[in-house]
Nucleic acid binder design. Structure first.
Lengths: 145, 145
DNA sequence: AAAATAAAAGAGTTTTTCGTCTTTTATTAA
DNA sequence: TTAATAAAAGACGAAAAACTCTTTTATTTT
């Protein structure tokens, strides 16, 4: 089991992909995205519909349509994508699945898990969707299986 | 989505519970364990059958039977429980779900994820199943929802 | 205005995870 | 040696996640 759901993995990979391909103002279609990140096309379509409704990606129908991102979108943190798809639980949930685990009522591993979760939280908050557009050597090269 | 599957959460909570209740040589039945950690009894039975087959917990049938742990078992790291139930993927898998992500072929977040995963790995390797038996104030008090 | 394009929406199926229920087997104690 | 106990095993059932296919709607270009 990964840290994220598969849906969320596709979401992250697709926003990186869209960010990279459309920073110049172009748009990119669902087929191309699906190929570019090795995901099932129609399943990804659902995911992007959702991200589009939430304003995380933009979309346009018709010829020359497709998905794209604006300047504001590129600056959004990855944490917004994750939260939109998987919810907040990854940032706040108990590692042992206890609903009432908290600072005052901690499970055996509460504090240790908290430290790790916070690191993940920081990473996802500090990494923007457009982050890898500026680092030409790293990044986008690797989004396929 | 939590870091562990629900099955694994139940597994961890149950080994902590069994360790605590049977360090003195007693045994504890499935009903009591299920109540003690707030889990579905028959589902937990399946999980413990598996852990028993793998030698992580011991079991005995019949009157005065139940689950228990020996000295060796108490010293086992929690990572063995997690690996038995959820497999290695949590320790080695790519955060973005890419099968061929690696040191030489890293995904955009490879190095960052690796650091976090390693922390989790260390925690699970350093915490033994019997760890909380010795710390009377912390620990076992909180395994129910 | 018509045809082509591409996302949105709707309605499924499949697979995996989670959970339940019943029967069987092993052990112990009366 | 029979009855009681408790885990093991087997066979389901339900829900969630992952994935597919078809139809509709919006847009653009000719």
């Amino acid at each position: 089991m990964g840290v994220f759901s598969k849906t969320c993995e596709y979401a992250i990979r697709s926003v990186f992909f869209i960010a990279h391909r459309t920073a110049d103002g172009n748009r990119v279609g669902i087929k191309e995205i699906a190929k570019g990140i090795d995901s099932p096309e129609h399943f990804l379509a659902k995911i992007l519909q959702d991200l589009s409704r939430r304003g995380i990606v933009q979309s346009a129908k018709g010829p020359n349509g497709g998905f794209y991102m604006d300047e504001v979108g590129l600056k959004r943190p990855l944490s917004e994508v994750v939260e939109a798809v998987d919810g907040k639980s990854i940032f706040i949930g108990c590692g042992l699945g206890l609903a009432h685990c908290s600072e005052t009522n901690p499970c055996p591993l509460h504090h240790e898990f908290k430290a790790i979760r916070n690191q993940l939280k920081d990473l996802l908050e500090q990494t923007t969707i457009g982050h890898f557009n500026e680092s030409p050597n790293l990044g986008i090269t690797k989004l396929r299986k």
